[in-house]
């Protein structure tokens, strides 16, 4: 740990995201102290059912983020399809139509970079399964701001390219299995 008290978690995932998130989010308690912001690559034209699906499994409140929504505890926020999700320094969420990053809107880099700016060393950035290049740069921004980087171990991941790219970009990242990530998140809240 880097000494700073953890204040927020950002998660990025692509191919295989639903299963991976289902192994983590349901284990967090209803009043989990750290807000969780999540970008999953979803097709732009589709109403995403991800938040609903996970809400059914979770004690946490899970929903799609609304523009300028204040960030609070006990909640997981998903980026809506076709919008980037960003964290403002005053700890509210913003949406934007800015250009896609690596063909993705929402983009993991965009969320991670803005969250690193807002939370600095108090941020935990987690990169899960995926076959995209998005996320590596964002995770580096988390590290450069003094935050904690965690990557799902590529061997266990449904798609290994994204975790591998993240590890290459952030060699100091902790590489953990899904159950270890869930345990870590439960621990860190108490720290």
């Amino acid at each position: 740990m880097n000494g700073a008290k953890a204040e927020a978690v950002v998660i990025g995932a692509s191919a295989g995201a639903t299963e991976a998130l289902s192994a983590i989010l349901p284990l967090l308690p209803a009043d989990y102290a750290l807000p969780v912001m999540i970008v999953v690559h979803v097709p732009p034209d589709r109403k995403s059912v991800l938040a609903e699906l996970l809400q059914a499994k979770c004690r946490l409140e899970v929903h799609e983020a609304a523009d300028k929504e204040p960030i609070g505890r006990g909640t997981a926020y998903f980026a809506p399809p076709d919008y980037h999700l960003l964290v403002e320094r005053n700890k509210c969420l913003s949406l934007s139509n800015d250009d896609p990053v690596f063909y993705s809107r929402p983009s993991i880099d965009v969320l991670f970079e803005s969250a690193a700016d807002a939370y600095g060393p108090s941020l935990i950035g987690i990169v899960l399964t995926g076959a995209n290049q998005d996320a590596a740069k964002g995770l580096r921004a988390v590290v450069e701001a003094g935050g904690t980087a965690i990557v799902q171990s590529p061997e266990g991941a449904y798609a290994s390219a994204m975790p591998e790219a993240a590890i290459a970009e952030c060699p100091g990242a902790r590489v953990l299995s899904l159950s270890e990530i869930a345990a870590y998140l439960q621990e860190i809240e108490k720290a």
Binding site: K68, H84, L86, V87, E88, R89, S94, S96, D98, V110, E113, S114, D117, A118
Partner: peptide, 9 residues
Amino acid sequence: YAQASIKRR
């Protein structure tokens, strides 16, 4: 303007 995306742009 919302600072996070203006900074990006």
